[in-house]
Amino acid sequence: MLLHACVVTKHTLNLSVKILQEHLTPLKEVNYDIAKNHQVRKKYTIQLGENELVLKELDLLQEDANVYKLIGPVLVKQDLAEANANVRKRIEYISAELKRLDSSLQDMEEKQNSKKDAVLKLQQKIQSLQAGKGKA
């Protein structure tokens, strides 16, 4: 009888560990995604700052100033107004992108939290099972 109980607990323990491992992999994935998101966001934030700086400087230029854009290995002369519009568009795009990243980050964090909870519960269960086994 005692032996039987022991076997049962061992069985459930193994099952729990398996479930836990199954839960752990997606959690790791989500964590990875979040880290990636942070990196991308950092990059975009830096770009946004740079673009804003460019825009500020372009605004300060006179109308007749020569502006060039480095495309590959060559400098291409650009109209000031055109350059201005381009930078503005770029800033718009980056801001939109940042917003998108924010929303996706929120989603991922929610997912991460729910998964963390599940994992924590499983871990507690395993611990209690192990304690029970130790006693038995």
Partner: peptide, 24 residues
Amino acid sequence: LVLLGEGYYAERTSKQTTEILKRR
């Protein structure tokens, strides 16, 4: 020829360049 960032360059005189640099 001052790099403003993002691949944009502007032709500037010395004085104007120093102004840009000071802002930076």
